[in-house]
Amino acid sequence: MLGNVIAFRRFRPGGSIFGEYWVGLRYFKMFLADPTFWNVFTNTLVLGGLTLLFCFPLPIVLALLLNEVRARRLKRFVQSVSYLPHFLSIVIVAAIVMQLLSMDGTVNQFVRAAGGEEIAFLQRPEWFRTIYVSSEVWQTVGWGTILYLAALTTIDDDLYEAARIDGANRWRQTWHVTLPGIRPTMVTLLILNIGTFMAVGFEKILLLYNPLTYPTADVISTYLFRVGFASSNFSYAAAIGLFEAVIGLVLVLSANLIARRTVGTSLW
């Protein structure tokens, strides 16, 4: 972590790992004036926001649906299957995505069957966000239900009974008993999700993007990767990385604070 100091110093490959001399905020000023930086910054926020929008609530929905299943075998089967993608390497996920979206892949077979023209999905910037978020949902939604399912079993039966006596139908029971019952879990996971907001799937984007999709796919972490390793501008890249990490930390801390003030649940 101390190595972050090179963000403030001139770094020379082969020299000291802490850099040569102080340059102050030069690198920070540099990227604030860099138009590419603002593009990747926006992309990061959009991709992070979309991921949060879908990957946070969908496991809750799936958990609630699973919770209503009476047939135990069916439930276990659905659970086992939906956890599976979580165990795959990100490389495999990216490879599968590429196969499904290739010109001769399944998705384009559908497009053709619907009378459309094949689309080179991975070369089109306007598709990248959809591809990224849906593959993220595919990989994480099942695994995300585990904690909610555990929380659901801890809700007191008496609460449901009381709600029924008060004339609540099932929707109202879900709304007034089930959801408040899993609220601490929801808040905790929301804060954790916000913590990874800025670091949006760096490895996956690195595998899936290409120069054609940079306008929507390039995020802070991939940009700094290229700045660092393709242009060997280590100090500049470290400054961008530090900036990103600080924003991430601020986000977590404020989410935690807001959660503690408003709903009384927090990580620490």
């Binding site: 972590m1 190595g3 090179i6 890249a237 990385g241 990103e244 990490a245």
Partner: peptide
């Protein structure tokens, strides 16, 4: 929540 970063 806060790591050294890729480059360092």
């Amino acid at each position: 929540f806060f790591t050294g970063g890729l480059i360092p």
